[in-house]
Design a protein around this nucleic acid. Structure first.
Lengths: 146, 146
DNA sequence: GGATATTAGTTGTTTTTGTAACTAACAAGG
DNA sequence: CCTTGTTAGTTACAAAAACAACTAATATCC
């Protein structure tokens, strides 16, 4: 019908990226959802604390590019579950330092195990070189410094 | 603190994919959001109809893996905007064939132009070979046949 | 020091999504 | 036909996200 049919929707990167992201999220979601009743933002916060150690909500937000309201609510839920503790900064009493409790640490380790497995299974479909390129490109697209 | 620190959150594929997808969506979103007041699902439906031609809601859903309730609502909005028409199938009066109106066609062409530009700009950061690998891998991850 | 602006984080309200239950049309088996 | 099952699409309600407005603490600059 049209002269300009060199555009294929299924090649459009935002579309492809979203579908791939959705698909992979769905696969991993059941681990943190069923097992710990967590939401996506919650496990992200948990992973940040587990992976990088104690930090403030602000720091998590800027690292993970999650909006502060989402962080605030996720932290509240995690604190409710006794997975994180909040301690006021004595120099700047507006901010508080978040850290994992032993229970949070345990959940983190458990989920990390599953994440690792999950990641490995995905990568198994491709060659090592391909996976390296994918990660490099995704990091670039996500705006994460190499 | 731990022996198993070979896990880096910023390399975890579901995380990377989501961040990359979000970032790229955000960039493209303003075109359909500001200009046409559309939601993500709406432009997807529009694109499907523009790209593949007339089809039913069911078909769009299975092609794009969008849930039928989302499609239903998106189609309702698009029909409100006079971008699509619905015609009952005379053989099976449960389903209806969706097609773009001239206005819908115009919006599609406009957005397709922007999409193409946007895609080109993204790809410019990488080599042709890298982009080919990326698309191939994303299609695979998204569960789209090559 | 005190008015003004910023910043960390929270709370409230509106949109958007997800899930389940529903209607209407068809299909199949008896 | 007529019960039972399935399918296309809608609607209703609950969960989650987006956005704006708020509190409280600190920083700035006159």
């Amino acid at each position: 019908m049209d002269e300009k049919d060199d555009f294929a929707l299924q090649d459009f990167l935002p579309y492809l990226l979203n579908r791939a992201a959705e698909e992979s999220s769905l696969g991993f979601q059941k681990h943190y959802k069923n097992r710990y009743g967590m939401l996506r933002t919650e496990w992200r916060v948990l992973f940040h604390l587990g992976n990088y150690g104690q930090m403030t909500a602000k720091e998590i937000g800027s690292r993970a590019k999650i909006h502060k309201t989402k962080i605030s609510r996720a932290v509240a839920k995690l604190a409710e579950k006794r997975f994180v503790t909040r301690t006021r900064d004595e120099n700047d009493r507006r901010s508080e330092h978040l850290a994992l409790t032993p229970a949070g640490e345990a959940a983190y380790k458990d989920l990390r195990e599953h994440a690792l497995e999950f990641d490995t299974r995905i990568c198994a479909r491709f060659t090592t070189g391909e996976v390296a390129i994918l990660r490099y490109m995704l990091r670039n697209l996500a705006g994460i410094e190499p």
